[in-house]
Design a protein around this nucleic acid. Sequence first.
DNA 1: AAGTAGTGACTAATCAATAACTAAATCCGA
DNA 2: TCGGATTTAGTTATTGATTAGTCACTACTT
Lengths: 185, 185
Amino acid sequence: MARPSSPNRGKGEEATAVNRREQILEAAVAVFAEHGYYRATTAQVAEQVGISQPYVFKIFKNKEELFVAALGRAFDRIVRAFEGLETAGDQVLREAIQVYEQLMETHPNEIILQVQALGIRDEAIRGAMQDGMRKVTGLVEGKFTAAGLDHPEVLVSTFMANGMLCNIAMSLEMPELKPKHLEQE
Amino acid sequence: MARPSSPNRGKGEEATAVNRREQILEAAVAVFAEHGYYRATTAQVAEQVGISQPYVFKIFKNKEELFVAALGRAFDRIVRAFEGLETAGDQVLREAIQVYEQLMETHPNEIILQVQALGIRDEAIRGAMQDGMRKVTGLVEGKFTAAGLDHPEVLVSTFMANGMLCNIAMSLEMPELKPKHLEQE
DNA sequence: AAGTAGTGACTAATCAATAACTAAATCCGA
DNA sequence: TCGGATTTAGTTATTGATTAGTCACTACTT
């Protein structure tokens, strides 16, 4: 009784394992962001995709692996976004902020996921979080250095601190917490 | 069969409801910090205090209330610490940093608790977190203003951002993430 | 006939929360 | 000052719900 709703589907949306994986990940991001890792259930993820709950476990070994994959996806997007930075001089800083602000608007759930991962006491999840943070920090430092900025380490640290405060402001729904700079927009 | 281990206890440690409450809160901070809100069990908290699991529910209505109380305790300590700030001029900034660093050393579990609370999707807990953040931000802004600093809002925002990055660095066990300032220690 | 994509039914474990109880301390009126 | 009532501090036993994860199966497709 596979795919009862589409006995002859369009060629663009074959139900391959690969795009099921993507669908599940997308649903997982939304469900985890809404309810948190522990309260979110695999049944909710399955429901959002329109598959049965056990099928989730055919694609992902367990819930932890699903979360780690969803988190990895979120970090991949950030990395891809920052990889686009090419501007030289201190204009790169403004551009980096803009890129991140764009990301927060288009993929808020992936930001929420990160904030959640900060506090989850689970080896695999913490490991994924450490990896992600290291990648982002390293990448941004490379871009700041390439742009010829002085004290890139300090600037990256400040950038990360303000980025994190943005994430937190969003997660807590406290817009007043968002970073305030001297240069007003 | 109450208090089987101490039929005649020392007068300094009467098992009143009030100090049981304190004992439970202290254990809760430790247990929540180690395992996270959802993985931590009320049985673990009880065990650490040396009481039965159901007794926890005689003192706290439910697990959520226990966590909220533990979180409140953590914020109270931060507030008390910052209330001590009296220095004038931009020296107050250095002092604030020092006070917070002291706190992180003496009460790391309360810091971990806060990072966890950032990501917990629960109305009461989020509310407590918002309250705490507002109190701290307001208090620090008052102190910075009283010290005669220019642009206190910007300085507070930067201070909070760096403080949060410290918290995150601790929670993720990534010391390399700690804020880097220009003025080296 | 073999692989791919999927399901329905179930289970095993975990845990917050409750109910029903007891043992000691303290109070208090005759 | 004796002994019953009440309060305080705690316990044991249990349960009700939830939910990750498994198993055995089916139906298309190639």
